[in-house]
Design a protein around this nucleic acid. Structure first.
Length: 856
RNA sequence: GCGAGAGUGGCGGAACUGGCAGACGCACUGGCCUUAGGAGCCAGCGGCCGCAAGGCCUUAGGGGUUCGAGCCCCCUCUCUCGCACCA
């Protein structure tokens, strides 16, 4: 805050009222007047009555006018400076809009309104993410039908809540993912991806939620539990539809570098994609089949002293010796019962069984035992590893437990514990590694050993990812039916585009039964159909697609809602996308954002989009807590936005939400805060409204006021851009305090304040703008520009330190040289007191800012 | 366990590149106004000492770098959020 200068220190005089002019005085030798204020009427003690505004009197009026005059509707095809301001659309829950949603939307809306004032054509649409298990589960719980419940919820969200928050939303482009005109195109996407080879149907282990009675994507399993209903997720073998998210693993990873996203979100995506660079190496079971392992440390191959198969590995049946068979089967049963996190808990004691078989190490022919252990996962790599207990913590723990040999192949530094007692995972030179001894393990060994084996056809460089293909099948009712027909003769056939949408039938009995089939499966009129290829009897796919597919493309639809013959218009899409600014919750850092990035890439490759990344900038807002604690139903501390809006108006609520804390980190909601913001808006209104007394047409002249004004414009602009809304509001408060305190009532200033506050309190701003005689909407009036020369001050306040401690402050002319400053500083009594009789060792000058005298 | 972030008055929070710590607001205290005030206005408000001027201390704790550290470095503690046997 170093640049800020307020008249706080020094003046005004403490006994006000008698003088006709006020002087801002400073102390120190260069005592001079820097600003004067002429009071029209004498006396600070005179009561400064505050005119109040009643939000109920005009907030509704402005909302109606915005709607009637289509203030928030842009001509999308004619826009000269498009700015696509996107916020994550809500799921229209029965509980209504959550204060967290409002917080998110308002913060995004401020960006939109600010860009609008800067002259951009801002497109700010809203929609409803209304398909999905969350809606359906709620309907089941409350004994209602989602097809009846959801439209009501949407209506309430839109009419009673969203529209009352003063958001700059263009409702002529809203999207409802459950409407056939929307999900028709969701299905079109499925078909298009299918035709372009991005879809496959595979049998494999899936995450089954017994609560929701459906499979889940890996991303939807959190701590072994269903992210929706918290049931413990089970493993099942089922045939499901998958999207090949892995096809773009490396592209999705690399492109992150160039995205203007927070590092936090990028880091989450990087971790999720989980790149590992290493090699596949072929081993042979003695007297049995070959098998491939993946390792990131081929340099440690000479230290591989046993092999471990995942218990689920099919090759184990062939490899395991008959006399070990019983033990293996028992172990497999035991492993199957363990939950995923039990198995993946690295702290859990490792278990395993010997198969009786041996493998031959390709680097030296060593005979190493083959084990099965559940610390090796079937789902990653090849489901088999080489174990190097000397240099891997997990293998080490296992080797110790089962008394397997530990051979050191990387030299540990002097004094490191023996690899017999502790695995060494650091850098070092290779030892016990045949011809490779002496090479630096990681920088040279990995490459050399891989190349050597590659020449013999036994290894291959390989990069693997933790990312899995996206399982999109859901055995549920409330979603877009997957547009596939199973024909006994033609196989799986996509529904022809002209037959879309495959309508989700209204069925009373939509409860999932756990059979592994969607409830649609029970409805013959849906299930039975004809093959579009051969015309023979066939049946429909009865699974619906994952809700995340609906939300992976909604922002392409917004601009093109007017088109019924295409999902998104090529020209409009070119003009408006990628999204300029996307604001949303970080809880979607890996789910929604990754899926939509992938989909964008797939559509790009298939030729439907000209760009590969959907969002230029993503910003994650923070989370609101209440009185320091997380809001939850059980705590009973849920904030109901409606009550506050009703009592204090949307503007006060908006301003409070933005003021209570950092938008990016979240804030702590206190009930009293909204009222405080209402009273701030009252003061602001009183200070700048002509309804509260005449405003002068003359321009501001007092330098202090000019300084305040222009400094505020500059700060607020910068603060909005960096999402620092709380400080932006604080700056406006300071300006209003200044105007109030000195009873400055100038029309020009009122117009500036009105526009500065408009992104935060749009209704009030429109009202003031009208009172001030402004034409049209304040949002078309342009953002005020600051004049740097008004912020420039010929004098600055120097901080004078002695040995780093503040001893005096001097108001001095700018740009003085050390020689000019010295006498002023050294003659200051406050300074003399501290340097008298001491030796002056050093003088530090920070131009126009600070002098530090170092004495001994 | 690993990774990221954070720890500042009674409270929410400011402090942008190392340069006046505590902006702005809440709460609180005193005063004004008032029949009244859960309204409004004025003033005070980190701690300790002091009538005051002023001084000392203070950004979780300890150490370091620097003329100067809330900010940079090291250690410790606490909290939050991710990820958690991915070979």
């Amino acid at each position: 805050m170093g640049r800020r200068r307020t008249p706080r220190e020094g003046g005004p005089p403490s006994v006000p009222g008698s003088q006709g002019a006020r002087f801002f005085l400073t102390r120190g030798p260069a005592r001079l007047k820097i600003g004067a204020f002429r009071a029209d009427r004498p006396g600070f003690s005179e009561r400064w009555t505050v005119g109040k505004y009643d939000p109920r009197a005009f907030e509704a009026k402005w909302r109606e006018r915005w709607e009637k005059e289509r203030t928030n509707v842009r001509d999308l095809s004619g826009a000269a400076r498009p700015f696509y301001n996107l916020m994550m659309f809500p799921y229209p829950s029965a509980e209504g809009l959550h204060v967290g949603n409002v917080f998110a939307f308002v913060g995004s809306d401020i960006q939109g309104r600010y860009r609008r004032l800067l002259g951009y054509d801002v497109f700010e649409p809203m929609g409803f993410d209304a398909f999905g298990i969350h809606s359906e589960n709620f309907a089941l719980k409350s004994n209602r039908h989602p097809a009846e419940m959801i439209p009501k919820n949407i209506e309430r969200f839109r009419e009673d809540q969203l529209k009352k928050m003063g958001l700059m939303l263009d409702w002529t482009h809203q999207v409802d993912t459950t409407s056939p005109e929307y999900y028709r195109w969701t299905q079109w996407l499925f078909v298009t991806l299918y035709k372009n080879g991005f879809v496959h149907r595979s049998k494999g282990q899936v995450n089954w939620c017994p609560g929701c009675r459906t499979v889940l994507a890996k991303e939807q399993v959190v701590d072994d539990k269903c992210e929706r209903c918290s049931s413990l997720v089970e493993k099942r073998d089922m045939e499901q539809w998958y999207f090949k998210t892995t096809a773009f693993a490396s592209e999705l990873l690399e492109a992150l570098d160039d995205l203007d996203w927070s590092e936090r979100t990028k880091a989450a995506q990087r971790r999720w994609i989980g790149q590992s660079v290493g090699a596949d190496v072929v081993f042979r079971a003695e007297g049995g089949p070959e098998f491939t392992i993946f390792t990131t440390r081929p340099d440690t191959l000479f230290g591989a002293t046993y092999m471990v198969f995942s218990p689920e590995h099919p090759l184990l049946d062939e490899i395991c010796l008959p006399e070990y068979r019983r033990g293996l089967d028992a172990y497999r049963r035991q492993a199957a019962q363990a939950t995923e996190s039990e198995r993946q808990d690295e702290l859990r004691e490792k278990t395993g069984v010997f198969t009786g078989a041996y493998a031959l190490n390709p680097v030296n022919g060593a005979r190493v035992p083959i084990w099965a252990a559940d610390y090796v996962l079937m789902g990653y790599g090849t489901g088999v590893i080489m174990a190097v207990p000397a240099h891997d913590l997990r293998d080490h723990a296992f080797a110790r437990k089962y008394d397997l040999p530990i051979i050191q192949v990387v030299e540990a530094p002097e004094g490191a514990p023996s690899v017999q007692s502790e695995a060494y995972t650091g850098e070092g030179r290779l030892v016990n590694s045949g011809g490779f001894d002496g090479l630096d393990a990681k920088s040279e060994g990995i490459l050399k050993i891989t190349e050597w084996l590659a020449q013999k056809g036994l290894a291959e460089k390989k990069t693997r990812y933790r990312l899995r293909d996206w399982c999109v099948s859901r055995q549920r009712y409330w979603g877009p039916p997957i547009p596939i027909i199973h024909c006994p003769r033609c196989g799986t056939v996509p529904v022809p585009e002209e037959d879309l949408p495959v309508l989700l039938p209204y069925i009373e009995d939509f409860k999932p039964d756990g059979s592994g089939y969607s409830p649609l499966h029970r409805h013959r009129e849906f299930y039975e159909t004809r093959c579009p290829v051969c015309g023979g009897e066939a049946h429909r796919e009865t699974d619906v697609s994952d809700n995340f597919l609906c939300s992976a493309w909604y922002f392409y639809r917004y601009p093109s809602t007017g088109f019924s013959d295409r999902p998104f218009d090529r020209e409009l899409t070119k003009k408006w996308l990628p999204v300029d600014l996307y604001v949303g919750g970080n809880e979607h850092a890996v789910l929604h954002l990754l899926y939509s990035r992938w989909l964008c890439r797939a559509l790009h490759q298939a030729g439907y989009l000209d760009f590969a990344e959907p969002y230029k900038k993503f910003v994650a807002h923070g989370i609101i807590v209440k009185d320091g604690a997380k809001m939850s139903k059980s705590r009973g501390n849920i904030v109901n936005p409606d009550e506050f809006v009703r009592e204090y108006g949307a503007d006060a609520f908006r301003v409070y939400l933005m003021f209570m804390g950092s938008y990016l980190d979240g804030g702590d909601f206190r009930d009293g805060g909204v009222k405080a913001m209402k009273s701030f808006l009252d003061r602001l209104y009183a200070a700048v409204s002509p309804g509260n007394g005449p405003l002068s047409d003359s321009p501001p002249e007092d330098p202090e006021t000019l300084y305040q004004l222009h400094w505020t414009i500059k700060s607020v602009s910068a603060d909005i851009l960096r999402f620092s809304y709380n400080t932006a509001i604080a700056r406006i408060m300071e300006l209003v305090n200044h105007l109030t305190k000195f009873k400055i009532r100038l029309k020009e200033i009122s117009a500036v304040v009105t526009r500065l506050v408009s992104p935060f309190a749009p209704h009030l701003a429109e009202e003031l703008w009208e009172e001030l005689g402004g034409k049209g909407s304040v949002f078309d009036s342009g953002w005020p520009e600051h004049d740097e020369t008004k912020i420039f001050r010929p004098e600055v306040e120097y901080v004078v330190q002695v040995n780093g401690k503040l001893r005096d402050k001097l108001k001095l002319a700018k740009g003085l040289t050390p020689d000019e400053i010295d006498p002023l500083v050294l003659n200051s009594p406050a300074v003399m007191k501290w340097i008298e009789g001491k030796e002056l060792v050093k003088k530090i000058y920070v131009p126009d800012k600070l002098i530090n005298l170092v004495v001994k």
